[in-house]
Every structure is written in structure tokens, then in C-alpha cells.
Nucleic acid binder design. Structure first.
Lengths: 195, 195
DNA sequence: ATTCGATTTTAACTTAGGTTAAAATTATTG
DNA sequence: CAATAATTTTAACCTAAGTTAAAATCGAAT
């Protein structure tokens, strides 16, 4: 399967984008590779692209004004969209950095081209809605995890949801994602072993 | 101004729904009043309506399986949409209760009618996308507040964003929304006075 | 295999929220 | 206005995360 086939399949699953619909978009998709550490989008830049991860992992993080500490907001991995949702959706400057955590490969489309597709076809407008809905679900799951779960529960949940990530990225990135400090994650891990 | 005028104005501001667009929808909007404590949507029900609050306040809350404790996820107030986003968007059973916290009055539209509008008009499909985007922003702000702010900072932020709510609803509802216990909010309030 | 750097854990101490129950305050209503 | 209910604060004690720095471990590269 080519990269475009993988994408076409994913879009069909996600938004019932069929062959003809996808054909409309084929000219717009571009390919790019990221070395570990390279940025998909940076602070204060408007996110103009919607990416689809062929391979790799990205993180979106916020830099605390006071402490300079980095806090991971989202992880994105293989066969998922990578985008700075709010910035992309509203075309306003981004508060975050989105960075490749390993060597990665994506297909991406420019917002202007996506808007052309929205104009051209109801199906693509529908896709646009689904992107926003997906963004919502991702954020909502995160909100719920903070509101309903302890850090320990969030950690166990993350293992369940993304066992893959743990082989790839360092634990201090995980603790940042969980909203706790490194030593706290160590203590949690120690506690869990005893269970 | 009639209720419908208020709604038309809000939709125009939100999604550039003009007079003709709105006229398409006019037949579908219905009116309803809620006594304090009545439910907009209950746990396990699919949320089939999108509401617009003419007057009043609603809360969406989750009941903890283990403790039976209620945790407030969202507040909705005057001139805002009230809806159980995820359930409405995906038409799946809701994990939450959405309840009127004071006597309230809304206009609402059925999902089937909204879908008719999506079919009929690009502008309404656009509106559908904006609803999802708005849902995302609401949730994202909430995620960020948990990830970047202490309970004290969240409390101060809520005062700034919704000074109105504090006259209307009890503090224990606020503490639930902030993700802390009653006594903690009391301590925070005491701490703040000394500043 | 050894060294250097990165990552993870540990330790010791501090801070703040959780828990439970009682007291104080505020609202409501007969 | 008194009584009752609802809400908020306080107290006392517990638990877990924050903080800082040092130690231990792991990995990559020479």
C-alpha cells in the first residue's frame, strides 16, 4: 500500500470519504519527513496544515510563562491526525509547540486547499465537521481524565490506551502529559509494583 | 426583542447565519421552560436536542461510580448553547446528567431537523462545524485549566470569566467544577482574602 | 569495556488538597 | 421572629504530590 492508500483508507473509515471524494483531494496532499526534535508547528505561528501521520510520534506542548517548564498537552501517533487544533480551526496564532519525538513521516494538506474541498463537496464539509468533533473528543477525554481520575489512574489508563508509546519516549515526557512531576511518577510506579 | 430574535442575532454573530438562512430553521425551534432541578438530558439518554438558553443556568455533571459523588463538568448560561456535546454529536447514550440549576427558559431544535438544515444549506453545515468547534474550545479551555493551573488559579479565573454565576449557585457546585472538595475551596478563599 | 550523558529513582522535607465531623453562618418558611 | 434546613467554614488529622539535589541506572559511542 502506498502512503496515499493508507490515508484514503483512514479517511474512508473516519468520514466515509469514498474514492471519488478522495480523488478531489489527491493533488493537495504533500509528503514530509521530520527528524526527531523538528517542529510541526511553533508557538505564535498559525497552524496552516492538517497532517496525517504515516509513521512517528508528535507531542504538543506548552511552555509555562513563569517556570519555563514544558507541559505536554497531546500526543499524536501513527495513523492519527497531527494538528494544532485550535490554531488550525480558528486560524489564530498557536499557544503551543508541536514537535516530532522520533523520526516521523506525514502527509499534509494546506488549510486553503481543505477549504476549497469544503466548498466543492458536502462530503468534505462533513469531514471538516468530523475533524472538529474528533478534536473535541480528544480534548474531552483529557478533561475527564483530570476531573475524574487520580494521577495514578491516569497513568494506568495511558498504559492501556498507548502501550506503544512507552517503548519510544522517555518517562519524563509521560509525567508531563499526566500533569505531574518526574519524582511523582516514580513514586506511582513504585506503588503499582506493590499491587 | 422576541426570543427568536435573540436567537437569530446570536446565530448571526456565531456563524453568519443570515435572515434567509435563519428562516429555513424558524419552523423547527421550540420553546421550553425548566424548573430548578429539572433535567435537560439524563444519564444513558441520547441527547437529541440542541438548546439555546434564553435565561437560566445549567450544569452537566458526572456521577462517580464508586463514591456516588457528583462532579460538574460544564456550566452553561444565558445566551449560550446547552447541549450534551459528545452525546449529541455522536448520537450515543450520554454519560452525564444535564440539569437546570435555576428556573430557565430555552429554545431548542431536534437533531433530525438540524440534519435537514445541514442537507439543505451549506451555511448550516458550516454552523454544524462551528458547534463542534465551540464544543472543542470549551473543553480545551477546561483541559488547559487543569494542566496549567492550580485550583486557586482556576478559582480566580472562574470569578473573572463568570462573575454572574457566584450570585446564583452555591459554592459547593463551584468546588465540584474546580475538581476539589468543599473544604479546599474554603481554604483557598481564606488564603485569597489575605492577599 | 569504559566513559559520558541522559534518564530514572530515591531521599528529605514542604505544601496543599482529601476526609470527616462539628460548628458557624445564611436562607427559607411557617 | 423562631425554627429548620441548607450552605459554608473550621478543625484535626491523613495522604500524596511538589521541590531540590543527589544517587543509581541505563544507553550510546568511542
Amino acid at each position: 500500500m502506498t502512503d496515499l492508500d493508507i490515508l484514503a483508507y483512514a479517511l474512508n473509515t473516519l468520514a466515509k470519504v469514498d474514492e471519488d471524494d478522495f480523488a478531489l483531494s489527491a493533488q493537495y496532499w504533500q509528503r514530509r519527513s521530520y527528524k526527531k526534535g523538528e517542529y510541526y508547528n511553533e508557538y505564535r505561528n498559525v497552524c496552516k496544515y492538517l497532517g496525517f501521520i504515516i509513521d512517528g510520534v508528535f507531542r504538543t506542548y506548552y511552555v509555562d510563562d513563569n517556570t519555563g517548564e514544558e507541559k505536554n498537552v497531546f500526543f499524536f501517533s501513527k495513523n492519527q491526525v497531527v494538528v494544532s487544533f485550535k490554531s488550525f480551526i480558528t486560524q489564530t496564532p498557536c499557544n503551543y509547540f508541536t514537535q516530532s519525538m522520533v523520526d516521523s513521516k506525514i502527509l499534509y494538506i494546506h488549510i486553503d486547499d481543505l477549504n476549497k474541498l469544503y466548498q466543492q463537496s458536502h462530503k468534505w464539509e462533513h469531514f471538516g465537521r468530523l475533524i472538529a468533533e474528533m478534536a473535541f473528543n480528544v480534548s474531552m477525554n483529557r478533561t475527564e481524565s483530570f476531573l475524574f481520575q487520580t494521577p495514578e489512574q491516569r497513568y494506568l489508563q495511558l498504559i492501556e490506551d498507548h502501550p506503544d508509546i512507552f517503548n519510544t519516549i522517555p518517562l519524563y515526557q509521560i509525567s508531563s502529559y499526566l500533569g505531574i512531576q518526574g519524582p511523582s511518577l516514580s513514586r506511582i510506579r513504585k506503588r503499582i509494583i506493590g499491587k
